[in-house]
Design a binder for these strands. Structure first.
Lengths: 202, 202
DNA sequence: CCAACATTTTGCCTAAAAGGCATCTTTGCT
DNA sequence: AGCAAAGATGCCTTTTAGGCAAAATGTTGG
């Protein structure tokens, strides 16, 4: 027995809450959503919401974390003889690919949704929650790097943080760039520069 | 007239509040401090506290931000003909040097204080606030790098994020290492690896 | 299938935080 | 001195945070 009914329901509730939080925040704006609304949307009580998340921001950040944890997962899944930085490239690419699948599940990201996301991201509380969430992801990444390379000490941690840095830069540039640039190009460029030791261009 | 009375008082109040917040949180634990206490400690009303900071966590994070902003400042201050990564090393070293001056102002960091800091840092809300604060520092850093190198696009941003990564790793390792390791060594090692493009060791 | 057990959900309650608004003070300037 | 701008304060309402115990729901051994 891999997973009982209890476990499954819990996971489903968690996802439902997180999803509802994101959707409502994008639609009506972060500040105009009460956690009560989120709970109602997911069909549980307000108090139950609090059993799952410490705050509205955490609920929203949860989706992003889960997605980011895939980077570490993918890093572990890739062939052990693949060079580390090649594996890292692939893993981050997967992360962004998952991000593009949009909300409904399959729909392509439409402009209204994207605008809502951008606005939502300006919320300080949310930035904090997401940053904290990424810190957790960093732990997983460092562990994955340590396992894959058999290294200890500063190295795994450093690589993990730098992966996070690359992810952040690519994401920021992608959100800002108009006309939009290809994520694959941005990511490739960022990692090329990192692998070269970030010499001043030209 | 560089700065009027009004400006100076404001700055002083801000510092007093931030300082009081840190001290009280370290002494009695983050959760046992009401913002009312902080305001009282700084000699202003509760409502005024709120005019300065959005939350308790922000007040505490503020000190760290100010200190981190010095990295960008120092980066701008250093001779223009100094190689970028040498300047970065010096700038981050300064950051940590400022951190070691301790609380009272000159006292060396005693164990009780350090333990209090560590405990305080485990607070999720605080981690979020600090992470958000570092994001602001990242903006400054990127601008400083852009000015110094005359580069645009991904590069300044990337360097800024990587500086943040190095700072985070060194700080984490320093807080964890027992017996304590020299910050200069840790930082040197981290930056060496980054400049070499983070090849897998050995 | 049932009964004892474990875990989760929920309602209730209090403390604290968040932030709008009007008013009073202080500072800056002429 | 006197007026205008900016800041500090008090008061108020809404929302969040989270402890606690009771009810509901899954889990397991007989």
């Amino acid at each position: 027995m891999a997973e009982g009914l209890r476990e499954r329901k819990k996971r489903e509730t968690r996802i439902a809450l997180s999803w509802a939080a994101v959707r409502l925040a994008v639609e009506r704006g972060y500040g105009n959503v009460r956690i009560e609304d989120i709970a109602a949307e997911a069909g549980v009580s307000l108090r139950t919401f609090r059993n799952y998340f410490d705050s509205k921001a955490d609920a929203i950040a949860a989706r992003e974390v889960e997605r980011s944890l895939r980077i570490a997962e993918e890093l572990r899944a890739r062939p052990a003889d693949e060079p580390l930085w090649v594996a890292i490239r692939k893993a981050i690419e997967l992360h962004f690919a998952l991000g593009e699948e949009g909300h409904g599940g399959q729909r392509p990201p439409d402009d209204k949704w994207l605008a809502g996301i951008r606005l939502m991201m300006t919320e300080p509380a949310l930035q904090g929650a997401i940053a904290r969430a990424y810190a957790r992801v960093g732990d997983e990444l460092a562990a994955a790097v340590a396992d894959r390379t058999g290294t200890t000490g500063l190295y795994p941690r450093l690589v993990a943080e730098v992966i996070g840095a690359a992810r952040a830069v690519v994401m920021a540039e992608w959100m800002r760039a108009d006309p939009p640039r290809s994520i694959a190009d941005l990511l490739g460029s960022a990692l090329d520069q990192i692998e070269a030791g970030l010499p001043v261009p030209e």
